[in-house]
């Protein structure tokens, strides 16, 4: 019983971090139709930028601000020089997927070349934990939960206050008609890429506080976020969080009862079954009803 509660607790915290990556990935995928595997490169870039700035200044405020700025500039350059021109050429999703893979390879190997392949640990982080009858909740987990909830709520508020959600839905449904109705689709795309990347950056920093970071760490979480994006198949933050926590719980249970190496296999078996038998995602019927 204690084990199950511990797994559930860990899954909620890790699921929240995954949901930050997945929200960014889903928004980018649904709005721009780019299957942005380079999101993994952006994730590790943010973590490395934070770690690097911390080694120089030992100041968390500067480090977080610098990493957010770094990923924003990086994704802006990628969108303007690669993704947007490909979209203008009406290239299909496979082309942008290939470009994204190439970008991921460049970013990850660039980081490995400059900083090395070994895991980087942040020294200036919190330690200690709270305990209640064998159930442990570390202080880092507490920070991850609070910051995760604040980041997600801020994102939801941003969508509500700026009415961006409507514009994003419009661009997602039909970019050409959105332009006719006066929506600056290029600007909306850029915003989606930058905000999605900032969310991934926050998740990466929070994860780095706990486990450190290495250049290869972004692919696994991005692929899991991609699984969430395919399962949910719509722009709904709460559903993404629920699916992220659920998937993380399955992964943690597999890791606990079987072996850590099976968890990706099981995750992608779920993806394969959904792709083969429910291509439009698990909640596709509701999606159609909502849009009717």
């Amino acid at each position: 019983m204690t084990e199950s509660i511990q797994i559930l607790l860990n899954s909620i915290v890790s699921g929240l971090l995954l949901s930050l990556v997945a929200i960014g990935f889903t928004y980018i995928f649904q709005v721009t139709k780019v299957f942005h595997l380079a999101h993994g490169g952006i994730y590790v870039s943010g973590a490395f930028a934070c770690w690097w700035m911390l080694t120089k200044t030992n100041n968390w405020f500067f480090a977080v601000a610098f990493s957010i700025l770094a990923v924003a500039v990086l994704i802006y350059l990628i969108e303007k020089s690669i993704y947007l021109p490909l979209t203008k050429k009406q290239s299909n999703q496979s082309i942008s997927l290939i470009a994204s893979m190439g970008l991921y390879v460049v970013i990850v190997n660039g980081l490995a070349m400059f900083f090395g392949n070994e895991n980087k640990i942040i020294d200036n982080t919190v330690s200690g934990s709270f305990g209640l009858s064998n159930i442990i909740f570390s202080k880092v987990q507490m920070i991850q939960t609070i910051v995760g909830i604040v980041a997600t709520t801020t994102f939801l508020l941003y969508l509500k206050v700026t009415k961006s959600n409507m514009a994003l839905q419009a661009v997602s449904d039909n970019e050409t008609i959105s332009k006719v109705f006066g929506i600056n689709t290029e600007k909306e795309r850029t915003k989606v890429f930058i905000i999605g990347s900032i969310l991934a950056c926050i998740a990466a920093i929070l994860k780095t506080m706990e486990t450190g970071i290495d250049p290869q760490a972004g692919m696994s979480i991005t692929l899991t976020a991609a699984v969430v994006a395919i399962l949910v198949a719509r722009l709904n933050v709460l559903l993404i969080i629920v699916f992220s926590v659920g998937l993380t719980f399955i992964q943690n249970a597999v890791e606990w009862f079987l072996n850590a190496q099976w968890k990706e296999g099981i995750t992608f078996l779920i993806l394969l079954l959904v792709i083969l038998f429910k291509t439009e995602g698990i909640i596709s019927y509701n999606l159609r009803k909502d849009r009717a």
Partner: peptide, 9 residues
């Protein structure tokens, strides 16, 4: 990777 991106582009 760069060659791949440039070729695609």
């Amino acid at each position: 990777g760069l060659l791949l991106v440039l070729i695609v582009r």
